[in-house]
């Protein structure tokens, strides 16, 4: 089974115009890959389906906007992959 990072990178490459080889663990989804909010929702929809979870984008965004969490915690690829793995683990109980 591919890692969460690889699966998410594949999803981003399939859903947006970003070449797969440009997506690295240290890439910031918005600042480095240039994903806008509309494409990001498509990506989240695909992640929700692929991993059987509901990515809490609204609460993440709220935390970042209120300054209680750095954007990189959710939107840098390696961290995003970790958050997805945590959500999958939490769902599995």
């Amino acid at each position: 089974m591919a890692s969460a990072f690889e699966r998410i990178a594949d999803i981003i490459a399939e859903t947006s115009d970003v070449p797969r080889e440009n997506i690295k663990p240290e890439s910031h989804v918005i600042e480095d890959l240039g994903i806008d909010s509309l494409d990001f929702l498509d990506i989240v929809f695909a992640i929700d389906k692929a991993f059987g979870i509901k990515v809490p984008v609204e609460s993440w965004t709220q935390e970042v906007n209120s300054g209680t969490a750095p954007a990189g915690q959710y939107f840098v690829m390696e961290n995003l992959a970790k958050r997805i793995e945590e959500l999958v683990a939490a769902k599995a109980g």
Partner: peptide, 9 residues
Amino acid sequence: VHEGSGFAV
């Protein structure tokens, strides 16, 4: 089809 966080399909 799907209800996500801040969006629906």
